[in-house]
Amino acid sequence: MMKSNHTLNVMLTVYVILIFMFIFAPIIFSMIFSFNSQRFPTIPLGHFSTEWYQKILADPDVWDAARNSLIVSSCTAAVATFLGFCTAYSDYRYNFRFKGPYLALILLPPTIPLIIMALAMLAWFSKIGMSGQIYSIIIAHSVLTAPFAMAVIRLRLSQMDPDLEAAAWNLGGSEWATMRHVIIPFCKPAIFSGLFLTAAVSFDEFAVSWFVSGLNKTLPVMILEIVQGNIDPQVNAIGTFVFFISMTLVVLAQIFFASRQMKSF
């Protein structure tokens, strides 16, 4: 290799590292700030302190918000993954008229800016008398996250031997029995993956939750409201906590996603 090529590679590597530093700086600093004694963190940093964590743990509003967030994300995961599974299977198994619009119906919502979805959901829920409840957030989040579950499960189904289903029918299994004993077991890792993925997306969403939640604040909505007031390092503590929950969910999703490659049918 030529020398100039070598210099270029070093420069590119440094550049990649800089870009990653930019992307991860806010995440890492947020964690550092959450353990820092200063109310307004700067260099040099203050001493190590768990003050902000103690504060949030002592705050009943935080506990309420955390409970709401857990309810919302787990229910959303169940509904969205169910819808995603049904749609993925329909897409895999059948050809029918208007299949394009049918798929657009599930795939479109994430491409619409959240602030617009938030306004539309708020207005609609008020109209039909369903606004300001925990289930309003669950319903809205299911619409937003179902495509993620569908994508993961559809990917899994495309790895299935198409003859497998037919073989089960030939052996006398009804369609329902085949679904129960062949297709669902085959999709199981993807279903779990979908559950964790949709839960993670729901757990972080703030715009739609903020509009439709009324008084039932979730953790991200609470962060939004604290941030509007003033500089409050509690946000970093809550944020770090939320980060670890989300990451656990994502890692679980990854584990199931990867395990299906190994356990071939």
Partner: peptide, 30 residues
């Protein structure tokens, strides 16, 4: 690694920038 930011609160990251970029923040201190 690039997937991680999708699952961290965008709000918290923004708040973090707010503190980092402010007049007395980390960037100006450096």
């Amino acid at each position: 690694l690039l997937i991680i930011p999708f699952f961290t609160s965008y709000l918290v990251r923004t708040f973090s920038w707010f503190v980092i970029l402010s007049e007395g923040g980390v960037v100006n201190a450096v």
